[in-house]
Design a protein around this nucleic acid. Structure first.
Lengths: 222, 222
DNA sequence: TAGATTGTTAATCGATTAACAATC
DNA sequence: TAGATTGTTAATCGATTAACAATC
């Protein structure tokens, strides 16, 4: 945590991983854990864990460590998993359909209430228990149901325009899978870009240099 | 770049994005660009761009800037897009099928030569011009075709075991979409974990705190 | 040559790690 | 109480930014 109450992006990015590991520990019936033990498990330092958690408050107890269930719940609250942000998905192609059916939105504070596609062939089909609507209905839908989060699985070329329309309809956050770096000029819009292609290229870099004996390499991401 | 020839992970993670923006500039027929102009476009500092590029060599020319085509090609070579790493994908569920058809592997130095699934109902079906094989054939396939990269789109529970088998069959790198943090004990294995759930949670954090007037918020990733 | 912009060194900033007093 | 482990401050490390001499 810096001078004011701001939590740095590095810390925030680690929170979901803590949440995930704590969930797993609950499943394994672990009741308490020390920062040292958790660090060993997650391949971090105990120091970092304590620093990270103390950005949000003192969740532990000296001499004991952390109660797993309690810490899991606290981090969940910080992340907002108890929310129900109305969420729409635009673009029901291969990727869009996979995201819609593969991701547990509810477990992450979002509720998928609408799927849209500009292709009239696709509209009407059912994906993840939801009937795909044509994008013609988008504005009416937004006015009626006021979704706050939009998942973009549309081509690069249309992304900027669609995003601007959605912002004007009240969308507050984008989970952007399009190949485009969404940088809205509006303030107070949250953007999370997922560049799968970039991720694969990072891997390619790794293999390329591994096989070429730049003997430093030993990658492990999170 | 640190003392020895090692390039830091932060720099490597930015390379694909440079590559992407330069590709776009080529499409727009831009011939040359200065670090200052590129920085404005990518929302970075000119200093950072010059530092990053100079980890790999002097690609620019004083008083002129960088030749876009040339720089694009150089970064491509560094990433390894001119390679043809034999690549297999395990798990032809929703996500696996979407990845197989949505990602341009060839443009990123990988060639998708096999898709596998443990479900006999799925095996035999065609995904991305490739017939899905049953995992029974996996070992024989690896011995025969010697793939180096594996894309894992399988459930959490099976990931560790599958990964270990694949390492023993000579796989050098994993693009891991399973919910599991793959940390192979073997050295010289490259892992790129894609945690879509974590990414969505980061977004949820953003919306949660945006709407709650932690007025600092103004997120824009990578 | 003069102007522009790089490559590179030095300064700053932030994030991670170490240390330890507080306390359960 | 004694032992363990946190919360937090201080030290270190690395990454980003600024500055500027080199050079096209």
């Amino acid at each position: 945590m810096n001078k004011s109450g701001e939590v740095s992006a590095s810390v925030i990015k680690r929170l979901p991983r803590y949440y995930r590991f704590l969930g797993e520990l609950i499943r394994q019936k672990v009741e308490r854990i020390s920062s040292r033990e958790l660090a060993a498990l997650m391949k971090l330092t105990a120091s970092q864990i304590r620093q990270d958690l103390n950005c949000f408050g003192g969740f532990g107890q000296q001499g004991y460590g952390y109660n797993v269930m309690d810490l899991h719940e606290q981090i969940g609250k910080i992340l907002g998993v108890d929310r129900r942000f109305g969420t729409i998905l635009i673009g029901a192609g291969n990727l869009g359909r996979a995201i819609a059916s593969h991701i547990n939105f509810e477990a992450r504070g979002c509720e998928l209430i609408g799927i849209f596609d500009s292709d009239r062939e696709v509209a009407g089909k059912v994906v993840a228990q939801t009937t795909v609507r044509h994008t013609d209905e988008l504005e009416f839908f937004c006015r009626t149901f006021k979704p706050e989060v939009a998942v973009l699985c549309i081509p690069k070329a249309t992304t900027q325009a669609v995003a601007e329309l959605l912002v004007s309809m009240g969308i507050k956050a984008f989970w952007n899978f399009s190949h485009y770096d969404l940088s809205i000029d509006y303030e107070d819009i949250v953007v999370e870009n997922v560049h799968l292609g970039d991720s694969l290229l990072t891997l390619t870099y790794g293999v390329t240099h591994l096989l070429h004996g730049d003997d430093e390499e030993k990658k492990e991401d999170n």
